[in-house]
Nucleic acid binder design. Structure first.
Length: 194
DNA sequence: CGGCCGATCCACT
DNA sequence: GTGGATCGGCCGA
């Protein structure tokens, strides 16, 4: 057991942390169902200066307030009325940095995840896509604000290292409205494990 | 209070 | 390749 400590989330470099999250394990335990896997895709949202962020310009609302929390909590919101998208809040209080988790490779509790997604077997793209990620792990927007040092949602470092050459950086997805910030290479994808 | 729309996914053609 | 689902949040009146 090597749960990631709180200090990990409190640092300033949200883009760097996004890359570091690749290869980390994420687990959830709801209804006593342990599910989890390896994070393979992330996107950084760099706070008030980032036009793609919900907190752009320092906008604080009931929803975005979670992003202004101290790093180490979940920011989950409803997208298109259907999907819960899961983010990890980073940096100190009042600095609304967040990292969207866009994909993972399932390793634990696969039967539970198949049940949640109404599938009978794993496909190649199972768990790839932020909506599917949350659905597989049972994460719901009502979980927004949950502490990642608790026993419902947490991350672990199991020593898996992703080689820099197996990380692809691209522009983020679905944020064309963000003008020049839409082009920033803030999306990170693992092209090959180990 | 009404209207618009989104950090998406899937079924269907 | 494409359009529909689906609803909370946000903004303007």
């Amino acid at each position: 057991m090597s749960k990631i400590n709180k200090e990990f989330y409190l640092r300033d470099d949200v883009v760097g942390i996004s890359k570091e999250l690749l290869g980390k394990y994420i687990f959830t335990k709801f209804d006593n169902k342990l599910t989890g896997g390896i994070i393979t895709e992330t996107e950084a949202y760099e706070g008030i200066s980032d036009k793609a962020s919900h907190a752009y310009g320092g906008r604080r609302t009931k929803r975005t307030e979670t992003m202004f929390s101290k790093g180490g909590v979940a920011y989950v919101y409803l997208c298109y009325g259907v999907h819960s998208l899961f983010n990890i809040v980073t940096n100190k209080k009042d600095v609304p940095h967040a990292i969207l988790i866009r994909g993972f490779i399932p390793t634990d509790g696969i039967d539970f995840m198949l049940e949640r997604t109404r599938k009978t077997k794993l496909s190649k793209d199972f768990g790839i896509g932020p909506g599917k990620f949350s659905k597989a792990l049972g994460i719901h927007f009502s979980h927004s604000g949950m502490d990642l040092s608790g026993n419902k949602i947490w991350l672990e470092d199991r020593g898996l290292k992703i080689d820099e050459k197996n990380i692809i950086a691209t522009k983020r997805i679905g944020i064309d409205y963000a003008e020049e910030d839409a082009l920033l290479p803030y999306r990170f994808v693992v092209s090959k494990l180990k």
